[in-house]
Design a binder for these strands. Structure first.
Lengths: 208, 208
DNA sequence: ACAAGAAGTGAACGATGATTCACTTCTTGT
DNA sequence: ACAAGAAGTGAATCATCGTTCACTTCTTGT
């Protein structure tokens, strides 16, 4: 037994693995899943196709990991926005949405890939987890608002699911003004007004 | 010139064509776009693969037609629901949503394929048209409501886009209570309450 | 009955893309 | 220096599908 993996080789291995996931994420951010066949990922990472398979059992596993990391980032950002400030539920929801929206608009393609682009089942499972996290964050704020008497009683899960749908469509959907050259600030303000009314509050400012 | 197409042959040709589009629609309704390769469509229609290409220049064209027909049906149904009744904008929007929702719940897979499942660009163009139609129907009702002083001023297009997103997620999305065994009537009632509040009205009844 | 034209057939082709594997190159402990 | 084991390679393989086309079968007018 003349070979023993050491810190040095371990680090090198991790570095290669990281180059592969980074390449995959970049390709997705540029052109979505279709723009990221294994050969292209390997090419961008500067390794051979076979090397990808030394680090991941299949393409699905690779992309599931990429997905998991990227979406965890997004969810964490939203959670911080929501929990970071005190105040009424409506304001905290608005802060969460604003954070989500600004990040999504900065990387529209990646946001679309995470939210909506079709993928294989293994990756889809990650997406489901991701969407659940969003919904639960929203549902939590709304439930508190109801408990405090700030919001009307409502089916919290249904409201939260519909909110996620509305936000997704408004940010990355083809109908969205954001997809058609609208001013991001205006689009976000409209979206927040919509969501504020939807949970049963009066928006602070009215559009237009 | 000894052959002249006649009514009889014309009818036979149309029938075959119809069998092909029907087979395609059924396969989509059962398993989505991925479950409908040309060979499977031909098989279900009881014709050879080559026959499909006698009737449609390409798979894209076939599916574009299937999409167009199916979505036109849906849009017409919603339009009738909205225009069929008099009354305040909020009520008419609710009627439109209810119609949409009941149809979507009856054929969830097809609805998902029409609304969200990724497809080639030619078909995507049909979908865009379809979603635009929905948005415009919604935007029309809301604009009238604003004009009548029934609804607060708001960015009509943004509201309409967000509504479409909310409805889609609530009906066919993985988060939806409707996807998790919820009672359709309850799910629809919650959705309508959400949308009613979102456009700036007080719902008639409160959930739970 | 027959020729012309159309509809129908399905094996073969071509493109794309994931996955494999025999082989080479690098690292490590003796 | 050397053997063992790991990392890396990339051409070849396999699978899936859309599309084509030489051929067969049907329909119609003479």
């Amino acid at each position: 037994m003349a070979y023993r993996s050491t810190e040095r080789t371990e680090a090198r291995r991790a570095k290669t693995r990281g180059r592969i996931t980074t390449a995959a994420r970049e390709l997705i951010a540029e052109g979505g899943y279709v723009a990221a066949p294994v050969a292209a990922v390997a090419d961008r990472a500067g390794v051979a196709v076979g090397t990808v398979y030394r680090h991941f059992p299949s393409k699905s596993d690779l992309f599931a990991e990429v997905f998991r990391e990227a979406s965890q980032h997004e969810v964490d950002a939203m959670r911080e926005a929501i929990e970071g400030i005190p105040g009424p539920a409506g304001d905290r929801m608005a802060a969460g949405i604003e954070t989500f929206a600004r990040r999504a608009l900065r990387g529209r393609r990646l946001a679309w890939a995470l939210l909506a682009e079709p993928v294989d089942p293994a990756v889809e499972a990650e997406r489901l987890h991701f969407r659940h996290s969003y919904r639960d964050l929203m549902a939590g704020v709304i439930a508190e608002g109801i408990e405090d008497g700030e919001l009307p009683t409502q089916d919290v899960d249904a409201t939260a699911a519909a909110l996620i749908g509305a936000i997704g469509e408004a940010m990355v959907g083809p109908l969205s003004p954001a997809s058609n050259g609208g001013d991001p600030d205006v689009v976000i303000a409209s979206l927040i007004n919509f969501c504020t009314r939807a949970i049963g509050e009066e928006p602070a400012h009215v559009d237009r």
